[in-house]
Simulated assay, not measured.
Amino acid sequence: MRIIIFGPPGAGKGTQASLISEEYDIPHLSTGNIFRSAIKNESKLGKEVKAILDAGDLVPDEKVVGLVKEELQEDKYDDGYILDGFPRTVSQAKAFDEILEKNDETLTAFLQLQVPEKELIERILSRGEGRTDDTREGIKKRLKVYKEETEPVLDYYREKGAVQEVDGTGSIEEIFTRITTILPNN
């Protein structure tokens, strides 16, 4: 199974991706986790990414695509995976299509978590990740960047007929149940 979980900041992508990973025994590839680890370790990539994220901007496509492409070459991804935080731009989506095609693979599901903006803001403020832009203004800027730069990915996959919308409100368990009814049985 090859799954993309998609939605704005605070939609619960990471939480649901972890549950899917466990339930379907596929690895969870989170670009955010890779970046956070690099930032924590103060690597060269980490310092570059921190400066970009602190400004509320997205990491450049070529950097993200290279990272994901390299990661997906590991054997643990041979039987599938769930992508969280990738692709974030149409350019990244097209690059991912090329990766799939080259490996003679197809996308199993594109899950779009739908959550009202007011709830997204409250979730981010309450989760306390400690990002310097975890303020109402910072979150609104991130949501604006999402709408302008990331939401077009949704249209790209809609044109392919791949998008499956999931109500992202309610308890973690309720949302996960909605997802499992969409995904094929193992």
Rank of each mutant, 00 (worst) to 15 (best):
I4H: 04
G10M: 03
A11C: 12
G12F: 03
K13T: 04
K13Q: 08
L19V: 01
L19F: 08
S21H: 05
E22Q: 15
E22K: 14
E23R: 05
Y24G: 04
D25W: 13
P27F: 10
H28E: 05
H28M: 03
L29R: 03
G32Q: 02
G32P: 04
N33F: 08
N33S: 07
F35E: 00
F35S: 00
A38W: 05
A38H: 09
A38S: 14
I39S: 00
N41H: 11
N41F: 12
K44Y: 12
G46E: 04
G46T: 02
E48H: 07
A51R: 10
L53V: 04
D54T: 01
A55R: 12
G56R: 04
L58D: 10
V59M: 08
P60S: 10
E62W: 06
K63E: 15
V64R: 02
G66H: 13
G66E: 13
L67I: 04
V68W: 08
K69C: 03
K69I: 02
E70N: 13
Q73E: 15
E74A: 15
D75Y: 07
Y77N: 02
Y77P: 00
Y77D: 01
Y81P: 01
I82W: 12
I82L: 12
L83Y: 10
P87A: 11
R88H: 09
R88Q: 09
A93Y: 14
K94F: 10
F96H: 03
D97V: 06
E98L: 10
E98C: 05
N103H: 15
N103T: 09
E105M: 15
E105G: 09
A109S: 14
A109N: 11
A109M: 12
A109E: 14
F110L: 13
L111K: 02
Q112D: 09
L113W: 08
L113A: 05
Q114P: 00
P116V: 00
K118M: 08
E119W: 09
I121T: 02
E122C: 00
E122D: 09
S126W: 05
S126D: 06
G128Q: 07
E129C: 03
R131L: 10
T132C: 10
T132Y: 07
T132A: 15
D133S: 07
D133P: 08
T135A: 11
E137A: 13
I139P: 01
I139R: 00
K140Q: 15
K140F: 11
R142K: 11
L143T: 01
K144L: 12
K144I: 00
K144V: 01
V145G: 10
V145M: 11
Y146F: 15
K147P: 01
E151K: 06
E151Q: 11
P152T: 01
V153L: 15
R158Q: 14
G161C: 08
V163N: 04
E165A: 07
E165C: 03
V166W: 03
D167R: 01
D167F: 01
T169G: 08
I172K: 14
E173K: 11
E174Q: 15
E174T: 04
T177R: 13
T177G: 13
T177H: 11
T177P: 03
R178W: 07
T180G: 01
T181W: 08
L183F: 09
P184D: 06
P184A: 02
N185T: 14
N186R: 11
N186M: 06
